[in-house]
Write a protein that binds this DNA or RNA. Structure first.
Lengths: 255, 255
DNA sequence: CACTAAATGTTATAATTTTAACATTCACGC
DNA sequence: GCGTGAATGTTAAAATTATAACATTTAGTG
């Protein structure tokens, strides 16, 4: 433990507080020590900063997502979601007005939508909106309200009414749990109203879920399985969906 | 221009959307191309990502905005905005419900808000929402609608009504033009309703504009200068604001 | 089906960053 | 002042990342 060490780090953190990066050489100059000393400070002392390619950046800031490397597992998990969304893509047509649910499942779909010339996306999720906003030739309608960080989505008392006013063509719904008998559920209660409204108003309803969701029940039920026209799932999910059921299961597409 | 380039970048951006970094080698593997291709994508196409020490990071991620490659002019311009926002900060109190306007002027304010324990932010701008969503202890209300990419904001026919339902304490309004006689203007017509509604309902109204906005007129007028209680501007803006006027000018704060 | 141009891959090289080892300086008690 | 250990600086080598040049593949065209 060294008082100067801590003092230098505090100074640097202050410099970075407004965001940005500081090259190690500049950090050293700022503190009037050698680069090696800054390096040692960073490894010796606990700090909210990290060194990335010779540059100092803020990480682990209270509440701010820390800088970390995506693990291979995370990357491959993303690949699976990507394949699922490739399947969903087959259902989308030029001119559609899509309702896109919150969560991470449908995110990989969005960049694929840039192929279409005329598409409207309706969502109540911030991450979905950001992905769509980055695309050209896309009409985006975000249903606002109070922000729920856990699901990156918004909730408001008149969201259902707002959704029913829109001419939604296809509803792409995701879920946190699918139980063949009990129904389809999610974590957060504020998601129930928009999901149900989208299911009620859309002309075609797709449930997009990977295998891990089957047999799971989450706090908030929002639909029965046969409320959907199509279920898109992966190789592992399909058998679970079909077994012990055969009558009122929607069409199934496997990624 | 290359469609695949854009598609790859979109895919990577999605993978990084929830934060973190992705090593170039993993990014190349994910897209099934060579590292060189990803490098070229990044330099060829406009993107929100940047390469930092061989790792791909979201450039607009809180704390990772790379300022080192900005021109000095840009850096100083940002510094000016930052100072302006520092002044605005003095008007904000614990427990406030703030209306925050769209544009880039007020963005540097947002990261400073993390010092407060209890704050509500109301906005109709996507970039503002993203900055606030990254902060802890913050209540965020986003007014949704149809997305306008040029101003990164939303517009809807009932936005004014939605704003007037909220208990907004202080309205922080920015503008593209301030003419001492003709009034305050912005570029986009859909911004007029929310700005006016916020001005109408807020208990305190602050106009935040740097010197470059004075004497400029933009397509859409939305207020008179004396609709505001305070004008926050910089050293160069203050004299322009005061000259030839003296009666109905609001209090002026200089950054 | 050959031709062309764009896109991508490969390789070698340059530049940068990281690490390790050792030298030097500084603070402080005796 | 001297000795001691911590802190810092310096240097060289290793590892990593970036760049440039050229080879190869691919997509589109006549």
């Amino acid at each position: 433990m060294n008082g100067r060490s801590a003092q230098r780090l505090a100074k640097l953190q202050e410099a970075l507080a407004s965001g940005g990066t500081l090259h190690l050489r500049d950090a050293a100059e700022l503190c009037d020590v050698s680069e090696m000393t800054i390096r040692r400070d960073l490894t010796t002392q606990p700090t909210a900063m990290t060194l990335l390619g010779g540059r100092l950046v803020m990480a682990n800031y209270p509440g701010v997502t820390p800088i970390y490397d995506l693990t291979e597992q995370q990357a491959s998990h993303y690949q699976a979601k990507y394949r699922l969304c490739q399947r969903v893509l087959a259902f989308i047509e030029e001119g559609d007005t899509l309702f896109i649910d919150c969560g991470s499942t449908l995110i990989p779909l969005l960049s694929q939508l840039s192929h279409f010339r005329e598409l409207t996306v309706v969502t109540y999720a911030l991450n979905v909106a950001n992905a769509v906003a980055a695309l050209p030739n896309m009409r985006l309608v975000l249903l606002g309200g109070l922000f729920y960080a856990a699901s990156q989505s918004f909730g408001s008392d008149n969201m259902a009414a707002a959704i029913e006013r829109l001419g939604i063509n296809k509803a792409l719904i995701s879920a946190a749990g699918v139980d063949l008998e009990r129904g389809v559920s999610c974590f957060h209660f504020h998601e129930v109203a928009p999901k149900q409204a989208a299911i009620a108003t859309a002309m075609q309803r797709l449930l997009v879920v990977d295998a891990s969701k089957f047999g799971v029940v989450r706090p908030a039920y929002f639909a029965a399985l046969d409320d959907f026209d199509v279920v898109v799932t992966d190789e592992e999910g399909a058998p679970q969906l079909l077994e012990g059921h055969g009558r009122d299961v929607p069409a199934v597409t496997v990624a």
